Amino acid sequence: MPAIPVTVLGPAESGKTVYLASLFRRLAIPRPDIGFHVQLPPEQSTLLNRIYQQIASPDIWPDPTKTAAISEWEFTCSVRTARNQTFSPFSIRYLDYSGEHLTELDERVEGAKRVYSRIVESEFLLVLVDGAKVLRFFDGDFRLADDLLLVFSHMMKSEAIVHFVITKWDVLAAAGHTLQTVVDCLMKHPDFKDGVGTQLRNNPVSGGVRFIPVSSVGLDFAALGPDGRTMIKKGAFPTPLNVEVPFMAVLVDLFNARLKEMEKRAAPEAQWIAQRSQTLKWVRMAKDKLPLVQAVLRTAAAKSPMLRMVPDHMVDALAAYAERKVAVYSERVERDIARLRGRMLQVASQKDALTALVALFDAKLAEFEAEHPGSHLIEGGTPWTTTT
């Protein structure tokens, strides 16, 4: 299977190279909670590891990518079996470049021409959105929309599948935001809402648009400084969060797009896992609303003879029942994923390895979507909750 080309779009300081270095560090060795690892050419491994060492150091950040620099990084996905065999069924080639090539794209410049051509021809666009700018967006600083307007103008030239990666998620999480509140906030801006809406309407084969929160350093590594722009390191060791999710989504969305093109139904097992994940999501939502239900019932009971027939212990029992449902479904989803990881240990060919990886990635994405409602927008559904 040839390398899947992915173009990483993002203005300067959105964290493109830092993200790729963090992705390499997270996936460079097999980990029990992931089930696969990646390999790069030796010179690329050395360079990304050096960048990551700068990230992990207590007092410096990596230098911004120079305007002239354009790099392609090829991540080969590998599976090591129980017999100590390694299969590498696919790879992803990321194009990384200086953000100025995007915001000041001059088609007369050779490097800019290469970026422009790649955008037009891309099957996947990974749009990095600076989480620190998103935080300022909440406070009425809409300069992020100006940057993203240029991204959308380039997106319109491509028929690619689009993943929005919200970087520096540690900053937004520290401020108490969820992915749903971030998507809702962005969708209140007409340019962003119309850009996403156009993507959903004009590219039905893509299967929607994903929003994926990531932190290249983890939730406790750095904090936003007093100026609201500078990231100050706390002295901890970085623990990347969700950086592998866009990597997995590329393969799953590629396969889903191919299935749509051939008008085939998804595999029964994939449907089964997706249905279970959807049930988990709704049960979790019901559980979150139970305190409100309890308060309403108890307040209304004082005014309604009929509601007084609903004793407190019945509402409490309902809460306990929901707690058990969440636990049971969570355990089942985890067992499904563990079973799929185990299947990869038994693969005997590149085809088996690819089949097992697609199933594992699909299950992991279903679990991710249950934990982050609103992360996958689909045309014709109810993709966001923005009010006007």
Rank of each mutant, 00 (worst) to 15 (best):
N256A: 14
S216R: 12
H313K: 00
G218I: 04
V243N: 02
V296R: 13
L224K: 07
G225D: 14
A327G: 03
V217F: 14
V310F: 07
V328C: 05
M306P: 04
H313S: 12
I273N: 00
A348P: 03
L241E: 00
K233D: 13
M314R: 07
D312F: 00
Q294C: 09
N256G: 08
S349K: 01
A286F: 10
L307A: 05
G225S: 11
A320S: 14
M231D: 02
A322N: 06
S304G: 04
Q275G: 08
D253E: 15
K303W: 05
L241A: 07
P213Y: 12
G225N: 11
V250W: 05
F247A: 07
K351V: 07
V283T: 08
N242C: 10
D316C: 01
K260V: 07
P226Y: 08
M314L: 14
R284Y: 03
L340Y: 04
L219C: 00
D227S: 04
R339H: 13
F211V: 10
M248T: 06
Q271C: 06
L292K: 08
Q350T: 02
A267E: 14
G225I: 13
R210L: 15
K325M: 11
A319R: 02
A222M: 10
N242H: 15
R276A: 10
M262S: 13
T299K: 10
Q271W: 02
D220I: 12
K260Y: 07
T230E: 13
Q294V: 11
V347R: 03
V250C: 10
G228N: 10
V315T: 13
R332L: 12
W272H: 14
A338W: 02
W272R: 14
P240A: 05
K289D: 09
D312H: 09
S216Q: 13
R276W: 03
S215D: 14
A319S: 12
K234E: 13
F255G: 04
L251H: 08
A317Q: 12
A274T: 11
M306K: 09
M309V: 00
R341W: 08
